[in-house]
Design a protein around this nucleic acid. Structure first.
Lengths: 194, 194, 194, 194
DNA sequence: TATGAATGAGGGTTCATTCAT
DNA sequence: GATGAATGAACCCTCATTCAT
């Protein structure tokens, strides 16, 4: 009882990443110690160091794996014409990407300060900038910039409200997407007001 | 240098809070050590403990001071009729409050994970909920809830963009406010769509 | 309510000693901080330093006050002939002295290690030696020395059992006294065995 | 000196316990710092934490190891008939056990206050109660209870007198045992008096 | 008679990391 | 593919004590 040895050779690296992300998202990066990760895996701290060079490295690994779809989205987006349709499609795809990597994004949203001077910090920042660049017009006025930036945030926030609130996560995601599209649409073609 | 004994009038408590907030916002809560705060004040760590019972307590003190305007805003808001005009006024006032306490809000935005299990954690959560409650209709559909939540976020984000970007902070704040009002207006009276 | 200012000027020194002894006996010397004492008196730590030079000094003060009867007993004892009657009388008087200063003696019994290198340490040791000297014969065999030493211990133990156990403290004290007398009597006149 | 790297075989845990007990007994629990223990072992404080979870835990470890004989004695005692012979045998064996673990018992005697709210505190108390229960009659009058309690104390005291006094420790132990037996015998069969 | 403000030394504890095996 | 043992640096915090006011 409770003693299943679970050898599972070969996949330890993956298991470390899984547990680490789980704890990082739950408690924050700084408050999660390697001891804790190791204990939950029934492994020694030293074992973690066989698979990863540093704590930072564990996070990097997770990020690289889960972030690939977003990177691909960026590449795809850069080759499209900057039409409203394209922008909408980007939002839709981004929303999908978020769904797949929800815990990572929740984590990054809630641990910005901690993540900032980790090795993924710069990458992350660039990625946000790049995304905004794809959905806003080159010389958009400040208000439209805010709209686009907020559209992204809305989608991240959709993930986080998942923590507390009532309601199906999937529905929330769709609602967030809808609002994001609305914002970007308005930014694309300001209409009568400005 | 460092030899002038420094008058040390009765403002130490305030100076601690100032420096602490500065460092918390700059580096994050966990990465800011009391040693660092003390050193920057040319004081011993023990001196901090004369003025505050704990590290958490320093943050609490800051929060209590800077959060008072928001608390007053909430009280005021609860006594008003839930009209669109009221909602707009709330956003305007909130934006003003943010301006005065910018670093604190940036800090809280970027350190959610760390702050969550500090003593101000619960208070903060309630406060967001209360604010959203004031600007959304009681049984608003999910999309409208997202709009209102996002409106708040937009304004916080306005503060943070301050960090990186080009442009006058004051202009950014106004842009964020405009977008927030737009979102809440849409949520208040959905119009033809949804 | 709960705010009676209790000025009681003049007797602060005494009140400090009272509270200190109370806490020392309850928690031990090392685990009782001056902060704690001060707080319970609604006074600042610095105030304690107006009345006593050091923490050690507070204990010394208590000891000197409460130990005087024992000191007088020793002086009296030294002038008496070393008869069995005298010895019994000494035990009786000592038991009485213990009754008056119970918490102090409980404290000293339970904090020997801590007390040993305080200023009262040496005094205390001498005093035990002096007491034993009064109730044992000069060249008593080892067994009789143990009897006399144990007699004293028995009386101290009587105080401590007061903490846990059932029964009237006064009765316990008398029982302890009885056993002590028995031991000293046996030591005084070994009888057939030895 | 201090440069020989020292083989560091797998006995570190034991060495920590040895040094710790030595210092605890010499200076008291509270006054012995982990730094001190570590230094004497030419090891870092952190190394102690590899082997023990906490300072309290170090003491627990020592206690568990050295207390086993007493525990076995208790078990044995509970299976014997409560005759005078049994009681005597218990005292004899207990005395032997004390001999083997002298420093621990001296320590516990002198640090009662400190030990009381450590994790071994409750265990220790129970153990004394259990021992007394074995050597006193169920409904013994108060005086007899004191005799039995004192008998145990006498033996502990025998250990401590070792610190100061003249004379062979072994002889002292035997003297203490003799007095203890005497007390318990008297308690077992009160004789003419009461 | 006291207090407010501060200090220096040290406490126990935890962390990410290393390295020989 | 992993462990056992250890380290160095830092952590938050508490203490007894001081001194100008």
């Amino acid at each position: 009882m409770g003693s299943t040895p679970q050898p599972r050779r070969g996949n330890t690296r993956q298991r470390i990443q899984d547990v680490a992300l789980e704890l990082f998202a739950e408690q924050g990066y700084e408050k999660t110690s390697l001891r804790e990760i190791a204990e939950r895996l029934q492994v020694t701290k030293a074992a973690l160091y066989y698979h990863f060079k540093t704590k930072d490295d564990i996070l990097s690994g997770i990020f690289e794996d889960l972030n690939r779809p977003v990177e691909e989205l960026l590449e795809w987006g850069r080759e499209q014409p900057r039409t409203l349709e394209t922008k909408k499609e980007i939002l839709v795809r981004y929303s999908e990407a978020l769904k797949a990597a929800a815990p990572l994004f929740v984590f990054m949203q809630e641990n910005q300060a901690a993540v900032r001077d980790l090795s993924i910090g710069p990458t992350m920042k660039q990625r946000v900038v790049a995304l905004v660049d794809l959905i806003k017009e080159p010389d958009a006025p400040l208000t439209d910039q805010v709209r686009c930036f907020t559209a992204l945030f809305a989608m991240h926030a959709g993930m986080m409200a998942l923590r507390d609130a009532e309601g199906d996560p999937e529905e929330k995601r769709e609602a967030a997407l809808e609002v994001a599209i609305e914002l970007v649409t308005k930014a694309h073609d300001p209409g009568p007001t400005a």
